[in-house]
Amino acid sequence: MDDKLFEILEFGVYGASILLILIGLYAVLTKRSLIKIVIGMSIIDGGIHLLLITIGYLKGGTAPIFSPGYEEAAGQMVDPVPQALVLTAIVIGFGVTAVALSLIIRLYRHHHTLEIDEIKRLKW
C-alpha cells in the first residue's frame, strides 16, 4: 500500500512543482499588470525550490542534523546539498523581488498605471 502510494507521490511531487513553474510562467508571459508579473516570478521560484528539495529527498530519511541521538544516522539522512542551494536561492530571489517592486513603485510614480501596454515603450 505504502509503496504504491509512493509511486503516485513521485508523480505528484514532480508534477506539482513543474506545474507550479508553468503556472508562474503563464502569469509572466500573459499578464499585463506589473505586480502580477512579479507574483508570477515568485511562484516560479517556489516551484524550482520544491523541485530541488524533491530531488534530495530520501524515502524514510530524516533531516541532515546530527542532534543528540542521531549521531550515527548519516545513512538515513536526506541530501543536504539541495537544501543549501535552496537556502541561497530563496534569499537571492527575495533580493530580486525587492528590487523589482521598488522599480514598480517608481514606474507608478511616473505613469500612474501598472499596465505594461500603457507604459509605452515597455515592449516585450
Binding site: V13, G56, A63, V78, Q83, V86, L87, I90, F94
Partner: peptide, 18 residues
C-alpha cells in the same frame, strides 16, 4: 511541504522570507 520532505532549514527560510 518542505518540512514534510525533511528540510527544516529550508522550511524556516521559506517561512521567514516567503
Amino acid at each position: 511541504i518542505f518540512y514534510m520532505l525533511q528540510a527544516p532549514d529550508v522550511a524556516l527560510t521559506e517561512a521567514a522570507i516567503g
